Simulated scan of single mutants.
Amino acid sequence: MLRKFIVFIILCSSTYKTLGQREKVLNLPSFDKPLFHYGFYLGMNTNGYKVSYKPSFVDNPQVEVQPSVGFNVGLIGDLRLHNNLNLRFEPGLMSNTKTLIFKHMPEVNENRRTREVGTTFLHLPLILKASTNRINNIRPYVLGGIAYDYNFSSNQNNSDDNFAGNFRTKTSNITYELGIGIDLYLNYFKFSPSIRGVFAISNEIIYDNSPNSPWTDPIDFLGTRGVFLNLAFE
């Protein structure tokens, strides 16, 4: 999926750059002048987990993570700091599901070997967006920032752990994201597709009540890692 997203951005950039070299009429010529503007975004994500193991388990990885495609939706508040630098707040909801397979357990008992972790979380990123100068009706950019995520599906306070079938994660987490994109100035609005990678800073796992749990004892760090495709309308 990441390769498809990158190809999509490159094709958009190449097409609009070619057209932009011929087209002299600027769409929305004053769009970037106001100090503040707003918008919204829709998108898709494919999120998994980065799993690191305790030293005694490093040579024998225990967990296979199978991500699925989810969705993103949210709002955009954009503050112009400079002609080529903007500070953005992009609160939104994101949802996806990961399947964890504990490979060291017998295949005959799927109830013990597999955990499906559904997540719906409030994503609150603060992002710096650095853009090139506008080339007629296009403007490439890079972005990066840090986010607070509130996981509504975490089960953090559930006393039942994996021995009762519940894989638990923390409710509050910190991530950072990096991305590239392109602003396309259309007749009535600005359309901005972007590709972003998201990476957890905090450890999200809640360990089982038993210190020798076969599900959580091998894991030293478990954190979200994924790719977003955002389509912004401003």
Rank of each mutant, 00 (worst) to 15 (best):
M1P: 07
M1H: 11
R3V: 04
F8K: 01
L11F: 03
Y16P: 00
K17S: 02
R22D: 03
L26G: 01
L28F: 05
D32L: 04
D32S: 04
H37R: 10
Y38K: 03
Y38G: 03
L42Q: 03
Y49N: 08
Y53L: 10
Y53M: 12
D59A: 15
N60D: 14
N60Q: 14
Q62H: 14
V63H: 12
S68R: 13
F71T: 13
F71K: 09
G74F: 06
R80G: 06
L87G: 08
L87F: 14
P91H: 07
P91I: 04
G92L: 09
M94N: 15
S95H: 13
S95Q: 13
T97Y: 09
I101A: 09
K103S: 15
V108S: 14
N109Q: 11
E110S: 08
E110D: 07
E110I: 07
R113Q: 10
R115P: 05
T119S: 14
L122I: 11
L122P: 06
S131I: 01
T132L: 02
R134W: 02
N136T: 07
N136V: 01
N137E: 05
I138P: 00
R139G: 03
R139W: 02
A147Y: 09
F152I: 02
F152C: 01
S153F: 04
N158A: 02
D161G: 10
N162H: 05
F163I: 08
F163T: 12
G165E: 05
N166A: 05
F167Y: 11
T171L: 00
T171K: 11
S172D: 13
I174Y: 15
Y176F: 15
L178C: 08
I180F: 05
G181F: 04
D183M: 01
Y185C: 02
Y185Q: 02
F189I: 05
K190Q: 09
S192A: 09
S192M: 04
S194E: 09
I195V: 12
G197W: 03
G197F: 05
V198K: 13
V198E: 14
V198A: 12
F199V: 13
F199Q: 10
I201T: 09
S202K: 07
E204P: 03
D208F: 04
D208N: 12
D208V: 08
S210N: 15
P211A: 09
W215R: 07
D217A: 15
P218E: 09
I219A: 09
V227H: 09
L229V: 10
N230L: 14
L231Y: 05
